[in-house]
Design a protein around this nucleic acid. Structure first.
Lengths: 253, 253
DNA sequence: AGCATGGAAAATGTCGACAGTCCACAGTCG
DNA sequence: CGACTGTGGACTGTCGACATTTTCCATGCT
């Protein structure tokens, strides 16, 4: 009867597939496997010591999160983020989070601020490149605080579905642009301050500024759109017949 | 050589799992299985004449599209849409499509309008309740025209991931609210006209108005979406109308 | 009667295997 | 020499079976 009255959620031991999924995610987000690289089910199964069916399910989950791209009868490949994709991703994330801010700013309370401060402090203590996965995790946790408060399950779902790619994006940002922990901390410092101020406009502007205008000059979004459109209009022409280039990104129709 | 020059899309015989997924989707969207009903893998497998592994994969895909909910070790159930969920879904769809309109309105051309007119004519010829699945299909195709033009792969992905629930929502709308074909046609008539007019504000207003109507606080939500979109899509625009004015916010929920 | 308990039945999680498909490489022909 | 074609190997798609967990119902106790 206890279960009925309290509606306790059982500890629900994690399934093998969840474990496998996490392992694969870590491998991708830590850069152990390169973008575009093929993920062979049998090899992974052997390495993880699980069935190929399980690996297959895990890959399907990762596809859902945008970390891998699956092409029927061809294979599964680690997703590739072109610069146009990166801009597109930032813009989309900005849209969702800005809207979330709009819905959530009234219900910001001290407990929430405190939680975020704790997370930020934890992030401050991180050192690259070893703590990189931890930084991603904290970053997502911080933003999740905001998006959850919006009170929209769908918005949260959509935002969550971008998380994988966001992690991948941060990975390349650190590798290529030499982003530092300070940069990330500074932004979140501003973000928390804006939430504390309870000003939706400032909060929204902080978010949009960071994603859309960050690193670029004015008219960032317009140029982002143009680039995205340009990339879409002209599919890459790979002259090489070599093995590695399935180009999972251009697949969409 | 032909394959290289024409870039033909392989006929890509549909896999069994794709077929099974479609069958299940049809069953849900036609109301043959009720929301909340349990979907037993073995039964479905036997009925469709496929393996349980295949059914399992199909269910995972449907979960990704929000049509079913899977609880580990407990089962898969047809998703239930509460009235709050319906409202949430409409709001989210409005956000995505309004933003898509902002990105896409410049690239609207006659060919696109013509395609949409054709689809609309086809919709007009439909009769409820038999043609219901067809209406959903046309509705989604119409809106996809718009979202695709936005040129943002992520935006399209997010929008697509809502499609399943949108279909389910239309199903209950028809069953409960006695919505007619005329209602749907009229809205899309306005939508196409707005696109023809090449006015992003009217287009956006048409979309937001349609989805959010009947909600609790239409004005507040509309203004929230407008502000977010305004900031994102046209940072230069002097939309100071909302800047200093009073700020009606969403109270309930 | 109401509630706990124990076990059978059912459903899910995981596995290994077979069959069909795709890719690379070599051979053939112009 | 370059392009097409055939063959072998590797990989994915699908299947049926076993293992584990959950559900349901009958039974017994207070």
């Amino acid at each position: 009867m206890i279960a009925h009255t309290l509606k306790l959620r059982r500890p629900t031991r994690l399934r093998v597939v969840d474990d496998a999924c996490k392992s694969l995610e870590d491998a991708i987000l830590s850069g152990q496997v390169q973008p575009g690289e093929r993920l062979v089910e049998a090899s992974i199964a052997a390495y993880l010591g699980v069935s190929r069916t399980t690996v297959r399910e895990a890959l399907l989950m990762l596809q859902q999160r945008g970390l891998v791209v699956h092409e029927p009868r061809r294979g599964t490949f680690v997703a590739r983020l072109s610069s146009a994709d990166a801009l597109d991703l930032k813009m989309t994330r900005a849209l969702l989070e800005a809207f979330a801010a709009r819905l959530a700013w009234r219900s910001v309370d001290n407990a929430m601020i405190e939680t975020m401060e704790t997370l930020l402090a934890e992030m401050k203590a991180c050192r690259l490149p070893d703590d990189f996965p931890r930084i991603i995790q904290i970053d997502l946790a911080l933003h999740r605080q905001l998006v959850e408060r919006a009170g929209s399950p769908r918005l949260l779902d959509l935002w969550t579905s971008l998380n994988g790619q966001i992690g991948a994006l941060m990975l390349v940002a650190v590798e290529r642009s030499h982003a530092t922990v300070e940069d990330v901390v500074t932004f979140h410092r501003r973000l928390i301050d804006a939430m504390r101020a309870r000003d939706p406009l400032v909060l929204q502007a902080t978010i949009v500024d960071h994603y859309v205008r960050g690193g670029l000059d004015t008219d960032a979004l317009t140029s982002a759109i143009e680039r995205v459109l340009g990339t879409l209009a002209e599919p890459e022409a790979p002259s090489g017949v070599s093995r590695g280039g399935p180009d999972p990104q251009i697949r969409e129709r």
